[in-house]
């Protein structure tokens, strides 16, 4: 069994930080062809709120990747289960993640998107958990850095539950 543990970031903390990120991104991508690539499903809540704080034109698209352990059959390899609908050739792609931890998924995604020749690829994540990092990946915009906790809420799930929590909390198992 599991339960909601200590709240790490309140709704207000998250709103404030997203506003700052939105301003930073708006400034950095001024006069660029910004494409926001939201990684389903965890980053949806973050992306939606982030877009409300970006003051420059952009295109929003979604991408979904099969993750290890999500299927009973893990004999295969990672693959994109929902691709971007738009062509990113020559565009400035900003990948939006809910959390970057091991870097394995993100590393695959960056390698995959790079083959499509965008002008630039950067990463924006709500949470960064460097203590769990296997592949060193540069995160360009991060909301918060967290220790090696399993966290839930604001898009992050445990067995598909808890995404709708307005805050981010530690998941406690007992």
């Amino acid at each position: 069994m599991e339960k909601i543990g200590k709240i790490l970031f309140t709704k207000e903390d998250i709103e404030k930080r997203i506003k700052e990120l939105g301003e930073e991104i708006s400034l950095d991508y001024k006069d660029k062809d910004l494409i926001l690539a939201c990684v389903l499903k965890g980053a949806v809540y973050f992306t939606v709120d982030l877009t409300r704080n970006i003051k420059i034109p952009f295109i929003l698209d979604f991408i979904s990747i099969l993750s290890y352990g999500s299927s009973k059959n893990n004999q295969g390899i990672v693959r994109i289960t929902k691709d971007l609908d738009i062509n990113i050739l020559g565009k400035d792609v900003l990948i939006i993640e809910d959390i970057v931890d091991t870097g394995l998924t993100l590393s695959y995604l960056i390698r995959n998107l790079q083959t499509r020749n965008p002008r630039s690829i950067k990463v924006c994540t709500l949470l960064d958990c460097p203590g769990r990092r296997i592949i060193d990946i540069e995160v360009d915009y991060k909301g918060f850095e967290i220790p090696n906790y399993y966290v839930i809420g604001y898009g992050l799930d445990y067995k598909e539950k808890y995404r709708n929590l307005p805050f981010i909390a530690i998941l406690e198992e007992f």
């Binding site: 290890y68 893990n74 390899i77 990672v78 394995l104 998924t105 590393s107 695959y108 390698r111 592949i135």
Partner: peptide, 8 residues
């Protein structure tokens, strides 16, 4: 297996 899955 995890590394192989992620094509590392």
């Amino acid at each position: 297996k995890i590394l192989t899955f992620y094509q590392i």
